[in-house]
Every structure is written in C-alpha cells, then in structure tokens.
Design a protein around this nucleic acid. Structure first.
Lengths: 177, 177
DNA sequence: CGCGAATATTTCGTATACGAAATTACCTAC
DNA sequence: GTAGGTAATTTCGTATACGAAATATTCGCG
C-alpha cells in the first residue's frame, strides 16, 4: 500500500487481494466439504432452480458456458448432478441434482460464506449497506466499460516475437554445471 | 440480485461479478497490448524495483511463487525480462527487465486501469475514499479468517466416489442413437 | 420438404492460480 | 568438512476461467 499510488490503483490492488483471499478460501473448502466455491455455486443453483439448462445456470452464476461445462463434468463425476438431454428442445442439456447433491446443499446452506458472514454480520447495518453499495457501484462501472474496447496501443513492434518463442519451453536461467 | 438474499450473500455475489469483469478486461488487454493483467503487474514490479528475486515479487503482487514462476516463463519467452541466478545467494533467481520490457511499462503507466480510472475519477473524492475504505474493510475481514480453518463437515460418506471416477472422462449424457 | 440462419453445448487452446513435493543452494553445529 | 536443517525456486497435478471453433439441433422461409 504505497502512499504514492492513486486511489484508483489502490482500489484495484485491494480487489485483487480480496480475490486472492476468496481463492484461498475456496481451496480450504475442498478439504472440508470436498467441493470448491464454483462447484458449490453451480450445485446450489441447480438444486434451487430445478432442472435447468447449462446456459441458464451460466447466466445465473455469471460464468461462461464453457466454464460451467467443465465444472459440471466434475460434479457429474462425483455423482452430485446428472445431465439429461432436453425432450422439448434437444439442443439443451438439462441439469438435475441427485439426492446426494441435494443433501449437500441442504445440509450446508451457508457453506459459501460461513466465516465471512459471521464477521460481516457484526458490522453496523448502515455499514453493511454502504459496503454493498460501494461494490455495486464498482461492478456497474466495470460492466459499462466492458462494452467499449478502444484499441489502446499497438503501434508496431509487437507480435514478431510470438512465433519464434511460442513453444512453452523454458530456457534454463543458467545451466549451472 | 434476488431480493431474498442476505446482504452478505449479495456482497459475495457482487465481488464475483467484479472479479469476472476484471478477468474479461484482462483478456481484452491481450489483444491491445499483448500482455494480461498479471503479466503487466509483474513486469511493472520488476521495472520499478530493479533486480529482485521471485519471492520478493510474489509477495509484492500478492501471488504465490508457483504462479509467478509460470508468468515469468511467458514474460521471458517474450523477451521482456531475463532471469539471472543471484551471485551472493545462488538460490535466488533475480529478474530484470529488458529494454523492451522497460519501454512497455514506461509507455503505458496507466495501462492497468485506463477506463476504470477514467470512470472512477469522476466520482466525488469523498466517494472514492469511501469505496476504498469499504474494500479494505472486506479485505481485512477476509485475511483474518484465512488463518482459522475449522473443519466444518466431513462426517463420512465422502471420498469413496473419488477413486472410481477419478479419470476425466465425461460419460456422454445419453448416447442418442 | 429442405436449406440456411440462429441457438445450445462441447471441444480445444491458453492463462491464471495454488499446494505439495522435488530440487538446489546455503548455513550452522559438530 | 560434512551432516542436517533451512530457504528459494521449480515441477507436478488439479481446478478455474475464457474465447473461438466445432458440433448438434431447431426454426423460419421459400
């Protein structure tokens, strides 16, 4: 947290740190519950909204279809949900939770927050609201910008390096003896 | 944004959305500048702090050493930084930016924000401060919890599925003729 | 009917991310 | 001086995440 940074930079830096904390938390979850946060999110969504298509779930949890597909692969491998081709529209793949899956969600309604919720609930109500409002403000700003994609740099000089070093072989820093 | 959610849940949901927006933004960056956000972050750190060890950089950008290693691989492949074994302590791998790398950072001091900074700077100063403070509040709460790892569930019934379905083969939803 | 546009999902390639184990180097006590 | 512990980095395995392209299906229009 260098004093020479702009507030904007500090905001982004803090967001990255929060994000990392969430990621680490997710990995701890694997050890206790056996599922990561994204997996829980999707399982929960499926349980609560009944049989629903992949695209529907993806939109609800704010992830791409491709991402949901791979997470569903794991949930299905664990026997927590099942895929079923839609009968009305056979392009769709409907997801349904198995008993096992439903049980896990039912047994852990707050599993996704737990400790965070605990700490958060100790704040004053007006403070909670303010924090949420600040976050939504940021989310809105970011989404708005997501649309516009002004090509910033480029000029020249870039991309010639691409081909020669494309292979993911790391040149040893220095072959010591 | 369901009305039936607790504020805490909404906070987490909003954080995930913000995070996604940052991720998407990062991918756009690849097209304009040729580097992702994490790559820029590390390159910038190396340029600004001179020759520094991997561990040092990792701590500064809040990422694990393993992650930094792989990102450095790519930056090195692109000829933006070089690895050098430390002479004093040969366990350390020192990073230094090449001319090319330094030039990119120099030419794009604000590349990491750009549009976000633009929008953010239009807010009232007191509002900016408030947002930052809200975020730091959250970050602090999350880091504090990172320490304690109370085993929540487990009971039994878990993990027997692991072995039989470990392979990443997806059982076709239903082999429709 | 039948073909092309539209829609839904999966596959493929790439880039983060992390923990745990392996590797290499250093350092201290004996 | 060497054995054992510590420290720094890399390797390995796994899980997200996404875009772009491929695939499968539906639907509209002639």
């Amino acid at each position: 947290m260098d004093a020479s940074q702009t507030i904007s930079q500090m905001v982004l830096e803090t967001l990255r740190k929060i994000n990392r904390a969430i990621g680490l938390r997710s990995r701890q979850l694997v050890k206790t519950v056996g599922l990561t946060v994204p997996q829980m999110l999707i399982l929960k969504e499926v349980v609560e909204s009944g049989e629903s298509a992949i695209g529907h779930v993806a939109a609800h949890v704010s992830l791409s279809q491709a991402t949901v597909t791979s997470i569903v692969d794991r949930l299905e491998a664990h026997g927590l949900i099942v895929r079923r081709r839609g009968s009305a529209d056979r392009r769709k793949v409907l997801l349904a939770a198995t008993e096992r899956g439903a049980e896990i969600v039912a047994r852990n309604p707050a599993i996704l927050q737990e400790q965070f919720t605990e700490a958060f609930s100790k704040l004053e109500p007006w403070e909670q609201t303010q924090i949420l409002s600040s976050l939504q403000r940021i989310a809105t700003m970011m989404n708005a910008e997501q649309i516009a994609v002004p090509p910033i740099l480029h000029e020249e000089s870039w991309s010639e390096h691409e081909s020669e070093l494309a292979a993911t072989q790391r040149p040893e820093a220095s072959p010591v003896s």
